[in-house]
């Protein structure tokens, strides 16, 4: 008797694998829904920065930090669950959300939030990839271990969102009478832009999003130009931005 065309066990074997994949994705979706809620909330709170004078940042930032704590919890759950499976198999499902979460953390820290014992919060502090990992309590840039982590690309894309947000803040800060802030932002964005130019980018998402950085630089420089033209830049800020 010739063997059958298809081994009878094969169907069940494949079906089991497909079913497992389906279940994993469903659970991931739930975790990500949860994360999404917290990221959106935190982004929402952060957007109040555009209408808040610098003297009241502290209260606002403590609210943001609460949001970030929630984000951290969700990311912890995601990390525990996702680490059971090949990282890059499902990474596409959460990478956008993690980028947004990263940008809330980086922006909050830049505005002076997220102080730790070793590093007091101060305006203009840029968190590194490693420091973002510490905030979220997850590893970063794993290469030899197939587990959840924050990738370089996610960090850089998060930075780009922060740049966009800051270029908006520069305008609004001036409206609130805080010209020094615009100067400060101008200097920071210019430095970041120079940093991005160090990268050798392929024609990928990073390159496309990177394009917005130069427009942000220009936008803020225009603001500073307007201010300096009218002698509106306070003395003490003059050294920082230029």
């Amino acid at each position: 008797m010739a063997p059958p065309m298809i081994d009878p066990a094969l169907f069940d074997q494949l079906k089991a694998k497909i079913d497992e994949d389906t279940i994993v994705r469903k659970e991931l979706d739930q975790i990500l829904d949860n994360l999404n809620t917290h990221v959106s909330y935190t982004q929402g709170v952060l957007s109040r920065i555009h209408s808040t004078p610098r003297s009241k940042y502290a209260t606002l930032l403590s609210q943001v930090e609460d949001g970030i704590k929630k984000e951290t919890e969700s990311i912890g759950k995601l990390s525990a669950f996702a680490s059971q499976y090949p990282y890059y198999k499902y990474n596409y499902k959460w990478t956008r959300m993690v980028q947004d979460a990263i940008s809330t953390v980086v922006l909050c820290a830049w505005l002076g939030g997220l102080s730790t014992e070793s590093k007091p919060g101060e305006l203009g502090r840029l968190l590194t990839l490693e420091q973002v990992g510490e905030v979220f309590n997850v590893p970063v840039n794993l290469k030899d271990q197939d587990a959840f982590h924050i990738t370089i690309e996610e960090y850089l894309l998060g930075l780009i969102s922060v740049v966009d947000e800051l270029s908006r803040l520069a305008v609004n800060a001036v409206t609130l009478g805080d010209a020094a802030m615009a100067v400060r932002i101008s200097g920071f964005i210019r430095d970041l832009h120079a940093g991005f130019q160090v990268l050798n980018l392929k024609n990928d998402i990073l390159r496309k999003r990177m394009d917005s950085v130069k427009y942000a630089v220009k936008k803020v420089e225009d603001v500073v130009y307007d201010l300096s033209l009218r002698n509106l830049i306070p003395q003490e800020a003059q050294g920082q931005g230029q």
Partner: peptide, 20 residues
């Protein structure tokens, strides 16, 4: 390209090598 050196340059250089 003349690279503008600033406080963040070393960080970006490290990231660049990884991306490369």
């Amino acid at each position: 390209k003349p690279v503008v050196k600033n406080a963040y340059t070393p960080m970006f250089e490290a990231l660049r090598d990884e991306l490369d």
